[in-house]
Write a protein that binds this DNA or RNA. Structure first.
Lengths: 343, 343
DNA sequence: CTGTTAGCGCATTCAG
DNA sequence: CTGAATGCGCTAACAG
């Protein structure tokens, strides 16, 4: 490998020389501007030379000149939560169709990692970004927005100014969670507990407050049974459920802040020698792809992550190609209660 | 947004002007070369100006100059298979530690998409790539390798020349699958079926042939019960299992080519009114994060994807920083049989 | 229709 | 210790 000669990659100049034309002509052939026409035979000569030399455009040079990188970025908390791969896939497919590559950042929902990503995004000069931030505020995005980089935010931000300089897409978590909780109560799952992660992000708090709100509305003979624990992961759900199982009264059902936590809760329940849903029913949130494959299949609220990513990317590209301008749009996406066997 | 003035991003020239120094000095301060020393006070002035103007280095320009993009690429079939997010996460964390960003490509295991990605990689001038190809041959990587871009391949390639110009990392699928099949037979799960995807890639064929090999070795009173169907996804597993359920004899257990297919198979089995593992036991391959959370928990072979990604990235960066040179290394990674309740 | 020319923003010689 | 000058490879005016 060290002995192998590194063939210096050919430039447009090399191609031009080989084809006996000027470098400009090579560029014109490559970019096929309709402003000027190239004679078919020179075009052929150029293409032949390109093929022969194995020329391929230098992205850095082109970017420096055009101020476009043909890269978009996506900022998500953790690709390991199955919700996000689906989301990313939705973005990726749209980006692909537009000839764009996708840089992915995992932030773990930590503010400093989120900020680092934003800075990295500025350096890399990506043409646009789709962000799923947990801690960032609208102001954090100002530098990007001001320098003309379109931003699409998934979800709500910590501080939402009236005139946001970016688009956003969201699902009404509070309404969705409220509907799910109401359903569980209608099924007489009392007392109804909830497991949530330790950090109270605005993002998922809609779900928690919805639980509390609906409980309060119905004036039920039960105290709030809210256990928090760890990350919004399977491990966190396991920990939180443990707390609930150690307390009294035992819940007849639990609502988990997301499907991963619901899975952790199910494990904890079984380890305690109890059955789902006979002893304790379980419901989640997200409808990640495996939710319906579980045993029992998980009752949850579908957010259609792939569709979300798809739509978010479409909004981004609408800005990138200039077909949409003006102030930020807010697009609300639908959710759907998925009643399955787990609750 | 359209009305907002797009503040043109400041350049080193602007910073230099503001700080009353030359552009060179700005560059020197930024890159902190030890060759020349900058007086602390000018350094302060420059840093102050940078902060004030909100200067951030232009990645394209720097790349053009340094021939480095600080980006690595990862090529995987489908981020939607939980094996890969974990793999990517492993890569991502190492890349992050080296100050690198990660571009992810999904190829769906299709040759033309894989090739497109490779071309894109060349354009984008990423500094290195970790590929999990299904169809590409060693030759397809030659242009990259020749132009000095380090390549790490996960798995085996369709054609393996003696002196590969790239590193590779792999798990001995054949041995792992053989061990699992042997285990299943030891438990007297007879007849033992297998569900696999329709396309016979070299990549997963090791698992299929291992099944056939061990069966043959033991000279068992059973015919081969191999059903293929669809993609290597849950849907594919469901389809393939359906075929097995429609045939005769029914298998007493099935080995699925990967965990996603195993999950699909489990659904099919339950829909047929049968139980896992009482009527039909199920085993998978990969040990994706949800495998142990299933009900019953899935017996499978662990490949430790996050660890694989981590290691692959380390190999890549060893090339990038020049601490490793010479011909391609082949690194075999461990697997582990995970016996759980499903088989 | 084709070629000449001029930078994009930065890192890096080489002189002061 | 600092500044002036150069060119990375490319696109896009502009002139022939």
């Amino acid at each position: 490998m060290s002995t192998a000669r590194l063939r210096k990659r050919p430039t447009q100049d090399d191609v031009a020389r080989a084809a006996g034309v000027s470098q400009t002509v090579v560029s014109l052939v490559l970019n096929d501007r309709s402003l000027v026409t190239i004679s078919p035979q020179t075009k052929q000569r150029v293409l032949a030379a390109i093929d022969e030399l194995g020329y391929v455009t230098d992205g850095s040079a082109r970017s420096l000149r055009t101020r476009k990188t043909l890269i978009v970025a996506s900022l998500i908390p953790d690709i390991t939560n199955p919700f996000y791969p689906a989301f990313e896939r939705g973005i990726q497919d749209v980006a692909d169709a537009h000839g764009y590559d996708l840089i992915a950042y995992n932030t773990d929902g930590l503010r400093d990692k989120e900020l680092r990503c934003l800075r990295s995004v500025q350096r890399a000069r990506v043409d646009g970004i789709i962000a799923t931030p947990f801690q960032l505020t609208a102001e954090d995005f100002s530098p990007l927005a001001e320098s003309g980089v379109p931003v699409v935010v998934f979800g709500e931000l910590a501080s939402e100014p009236a005139n946001r300089p970016f688009d956003s897409i969201f699902v009404n978590d509070a309404a969705a969670a409220g509907e799910l909780v109401a359903y569980l109560l209608d099924r007489d799952y009392l007392p109804l507990g909830m497991v949530a992660d330790a950090a109270a992000h605005l993002r998922r708090e809609g779900r928690t407050t919805a639980y509390q709100r609906v409980l309060a509305e119905r004036v039920l003979p039960q105290a709030e049974l809210l256990a928090r624990g760890g990350d919004p992961t399977e491990a966190g759900g396991y920990i939180a459920m443990h707390k609930l199982l150690a307390g009294s009264p035992l819940p007849r059902a639990v609502f988990a802040a997301n499907d991963m936590m619901a899975m952790g809760a199910m494990v904890a329940i079984r380890e305690a020698g109890l059955r789902v849903p006979e002893d304790i029913a379980v419901a989640g949130f997200d409808d990640i792809p495996v939710a319906r494959l579980l045993n029992p299949p998980l009752t949850t609220v579908a957010q259609f992550p792939e569709h979300l990513g798809h739509r978010a990317a479409e909004m981004l590209f609408a800005r990138l190609n200039g077909s949409v301008t003006g102030e930020g749009r807010r697009v609300e996406m639908p959710y759907e209660l998925k009643v399955r066997a787990s609750a």
